[in-house]
Design a protein around this nucleic acid. Structure first.
Length: 446
RNA sequence: GGUGCGGUAGUUCAGUUGGUUUAGAAUACCGGCCUGUCACGCCGUAGGUCACGGGUUCGAGUCCCGUCCGCACCGCCA
């Protein structure tokens, strides 16, 4: 069976299998639109076409319906297909034979063809209630194909750069922040948690492999209901040793993203066109401001309310500074650095020039925070001192602190939210649409 | 947790100031037609406990209260 059908096969007799996405009947025959892994393939029914059911008995074309699994043999012809969902848009198959392999048990299959996208917010419920089928919509397929490509490009680039992929536990005894927004669960009578971040383990990984990354779920028990939050999301985590400062981490992330953008541009051309998406612009010098500078710029330029003195960016500011960076510097990305110490996790290294600030950064893209990162503390005593200052009991983190007790290089890292970066690449309003099966406060199925 | 908007055929929506026999349209499904369509088109059939519960009224899809659910925004975060 062919897996790579292209115009080099013009004139050949080929066999292709797929699901019937649509059937258009005319008096002279019609069209069977097959759905393949990357999109649609048009086949043309004519006088010579024959149809067979699962038992090999001849049947009529009118027996065909949507979501049947079929194998079609026929000749490849050149054609111009206008449907943007057609992955094979320069060829079609003149049908000799259609064999039904399997059929749905109802003709009223879930309608995934007439789904709307973009601002049509109210249909999200229907889409997610029937996600197992609505995923077959070519545009949903395209979103997750781009996501898959992002994850692959992430792993490939980092592997090239000497990083080792690690796999860390998601059942943990203590949350990374020691905070309240973790899911609790019973573990043979003992209370444990779902990991909200692989932070501890990826730092441990640096002591082993110098440079590590992980692609894995993270869990947040926050009762938020926004278009940018999930209670289970895929975290693209990076941690690297022997850094001279957090700039090394930021530069690596910029290079990594450049590589991902390039890969998506070449591999997912069809998906980008179908979704009408424009890839983000990442200039050689990404705009970079301290948090306090962002507050000042936005206030002085009269772009937002006065947020000076606040210890984080308001969502309004995230959108405004990104707009500002796009207009003034032609960048879809903005680094924001030096967040106040009390606002960041205990493992963030304080700025020696101003201990009230940390050597930490966020990366914003098109108005949304897609990354948090920074340099970490690498000496045990510093951890103990900072944890005690915060009212945390260092003894609860013994396995973690033992890592530093036994020696660790200066290091830092970051994490990218996979659903967020996918949604930002594709200008999708709600990150849930960039999740195969989103988990939110009211949804754990399908 | 807070604020706002919403819940009407399988789906997406319209439904005027509370009042017209049977609550409409598009789409999907089913039947028929169509010489190349591409969200194909045309004709027809069928499809509804107007989210649920209570209230006001001669009369409620429409007004009021409660509950449940959805979306957006905020706090928070990736």
């Amino acid at each position: 069976m062919l897996t790579n059908l292209n115009n080099a096969h013009t004139g050949d007799l080929v066999e292709v299998s797929g699901m019937i996405h649509n059937v258009r009947v005319t008096k002279w025959g019609g069209f069977i639109i097959l759905r393949k892994s990357r999109g649609l393939l048009q086949t043309v029914v004519g006088d010579r076409s024959q149809f067979f059911n699962e038992q090999g008995e001849p049947v009529a074309m009118s027996d065909l319906c949507r979501e049947m699994a079929v194998t079609i043999t026929g000749k490849v012809n050149e054609a111009t297909i206008k449907d943007p969902a057609a992955f094979y848009n320069t060829l079609e198959i003149a049908v000799d034979k259609v064999t039904i392999l399997s059929r749905p048990s109802t003709t009223e299959v879930v309608d995934m063809n007439s789904l709307k996208f973009g601002d049509e917010e109210t249909l999200l419920r229907y889409k997610f209630d029937n996600r197992q089928v609505t995923l077959r919509n070519p545009r949903d397929m395209a979103i997750l194909k781009v996501q898959s490509t992002i994850a692959k490009a992430f792993a490939d680039y980092l592997t090239e750069e000497g990083f080792t992929q690690i796999f860390t536990p998601k059942i943990v005894s203590e949350g990374a922040e020691g905070g309240a927004n973790v899911f609790k669960m019973d573990y043979f009578g003992k209370q444990v948690y779902l990991a909200q971040s692989p932070q501890f383990y990826k730092q441990i990984g640096v002591g082993v492999y110098e440079r590590v990354f992980e692609i894995a779920p993270a869990y947040r028990a926050e009762k938020h209901a926004t278009s940018r939050h999930l209670n289970e999301y895929i975290s693209l985590d990076v941690e690297m040793g022997f850094i001279k400062g957090q700039e090394d981490v930021m530069n690596l992330e910029a290079d990594l993203l450049r590589s991902i953008i390039e890969r998506v541009g070449t591999v997912c051309d069809h998906e980008l066109k179908l979704l009408n998406a424009t890839l983000p612009v990442l200039p050689a010098n990404v705009p970079m401001w301290k948090l306090s500078e962002v507050h000042e710029i936005l206030f002085n330029e009269h772009l937002t309310e006065d947020h000076r003195g606040e210890d984080d960016l308001a969502p309004e500011e995230e959108r405004a500074i990104c707009k500002y960076a796009a207009e003034k510097f032609g960048s879809d990305f903005v680094f924001v650095t030096h967040f106040p110490s009390q606002h960041r996790a205990f493992y963030a290294m304080d700025d020696p020039k101003d201990p009230s600030l940390t050597l930490s950064f966020d990366l914003l893209m098109r108005g949304l925070e897609i990354t948090s990162g920074g340099q970490r503390i690498h000496r045990e005593e510093e951890y103990r001192e900072k944890m005690t200052r915060r009212g945390m009991n260092p003894d609860n983190f013994r396995f973690y602190l033992d890592t530093f007790k036994n020696g660790m290089p200066p290091h830092g890292g970051f994490a990218i939210g996979l659903e967020r970066i996918t949604a930002c690449f594709l200008n999708i309003a709600n990150v849930k649409e960039a999740s195969m099966f989103p988990r939110d406060i009211n949804r754990v199925a399908p």
